[in-house]
């Protein structure tokens, strides 16, 4: 009796105050037009957004959380990428 699974979409919304589109959730729709309309109804009922992107969920390639250690290791050891790594004499003031 089960119907075939319909396409799942990921919804990204750019809010009034934010610059970037942010992931809001997901929904089912047969095509992108219906996905946009459903996204408006489901995720922006209180004026949460000025722009919506919908992306088929299966078009997203995600990093593997099990590999997160290896994936992000190169950034772990490079503290010299942060401003606090450098000493600036107090007399110089805020920089």
């Amino acid at each position: 009796m089960s119907e075939p699974n319909s396409q799942l979409w990921e919804v990204f919304i750019r809010s009034r105050n934010g610059l970037a589109h942010k992931h809001a959730g997901s929904l089912h729709a047969a095509d992108s037009t219906l996905a946009l309309q459903a996204a408006r109804d489901v995720y922006t009922r209180r004026g949460e957004g000025l722009s919506i992107w919908v992306v088929p969920s299966n078009a997203i390639t995600a990093s593997d959380p099990a590999e997160a250690g290896m994936m992000f290791e190169p950034a772990q050891s490079k503290i010299y990428r942060h401003p606090t790594f450098y000493d600036v004499p107090d007399e110089v003031g805020h920089m």
Partner: peptide, 8 residues
């Protein structure tokens, strides 16, 4: 991600 497709 709310993605079921990633959940194979």
């Amino acid at each position: 991600m709310y993605t079921q497709a990633l959940n194979a």
